[in-house]
Design a protein around this nucleic acid. Structure first.
Lengths: 194, 194
DNA sequence: AGGCTAAGTAATCAAGTGATAACCTGTCAA
DNA sequence: TTGACAGGTTATCACTTGATTACTTAGCCT
């Protein structure tokens, strides 16, 4: 008459699992809008355990943010690592890579929330560091600062539009519709189905 | 031996005062990160009074957001209302207007927080409406959607950089420094002193 | 076998929060 | 003068939330 055997995990595996769950949870509500209990429920674990793993909610968020920011930088690095035909445009490839990340949604949302929460000094510092790393990665193309800036600006617009759930609410006739179609282009259908 | 005479105000004036105070408060912490008590303290008024004026914290935030979003749209409309010499670039003027708003800081921060808090359905809806109105205003120039989109994208980058307090932390040598100088250009000094 | 370490939970807490209710008090009209 | 409305506060509440403590139990080593 035993209850279901309770699965155990190595601390490292569990930490990873909670980190992923926290990414999903924070993506929805941001730092202030997400409780450690919400993260715990998402991870299928008790609330005190998630704070014990990470110390404080802030440190948990910083870990999640660092992960997300690394993910994006790495995606760009991967694109830049493959040498492409001389007639191909690097920036188009980078844009496509970003578009692929958009479908994941969580990483970009977390990134966005981290930026907005820059009022929290530690978060602001890490946000600047993360953005700096991404910028430097883009600059390894040897481009002018303006080029990298414009690329990032496009990305920020997409982030913002995602944050306000523009793709799911893309209705012809709405004031914002033209902007949504123009900003997302061909990837709109993939995001609208979300 | 009377205490200081307690100043009275018309409800409308007081509402306006609280609205401004709330703008400052929400600009710092966003919707979830700012308590009604913080708003009350900023306004020099009791906490129950601010919720009585606006009903709920959410409605207060929506009012603040609407104000901010209107402010920006109006600033653009003002630029477009004045007809300028044929050799002048409208977009440059619009950019300057946006730069002027940046020094206020609060409006843009609130806007940013509203975008990020799009997970809250009512906030998301109002964010899309606000952005839509701004987009439509820009489109009255008769430009292509891409032109307006690019302009907004630059604005979003500036918003994000402001949110992470990049101007105040612009230190030569930091990874992000090149991006900060490039994005803000000549208005950097005015913002760094903040 | 037996005990020790590490994974994980239940119980609990103090502080903060949004909201409600009840009360107070200028000011103005009749 | 009086009364009543409008501006505003104090007191209070139910609930959430991040964090701490103490306890339980699985699995490995000898």
């Amino acid at each position: 008459m035993n209850a279901a055997p309770i699965p155990r995990m190595s601390a490292e595996d569990r930490r990873e699992l909670v980190l992923h769950a926290a990414t999903r949870a924070f993506a929805r509500g941001g730092f202030h809008g997400t409780s450690t209990d919400a993260v715990a429920k998402e991870a299928g674990v008790s609330q005190p355990y998630v704070v014990r793993i990470f110390g404080t909610k802030l440190e948990l968020f910083l870990a999640v943010f660092a992960r997300a920011s690394d993910q994006i930088r790495t995606a760009f690095e991967d694109v830049l690592a493959q040498d492409l035909a001389p007639d191909e445009d690097v920036w188009e490839h980078l844009g496509l890579a970003y578009g692929a990340l958009l479908t994941d949604r969580d990483f970009l949302q977390v990134l966005m929330h981290g930026f907005s929460a820059g009022g929290e000094p530690e978060i602001g510092a890490q946000a600047r560091a993360g953005m700096g790393a991404i910028y430097q990665t883009l600059m390894t193309t040897g481009c002018e600062p303006d080029r990298a800036k414009d690329f990032i600006a496009q990305g920020m617009l997409l982030n913002v539009m995602m944050s306000m759930h523009a793709p799911e609410h893309a209705v012809e006739g709405d004031d914002i519709f033209g902007l949504t179609t123009c900003a997302f282009g061909e990837m709109l259908p993939a995001l609208a189905a979300d």
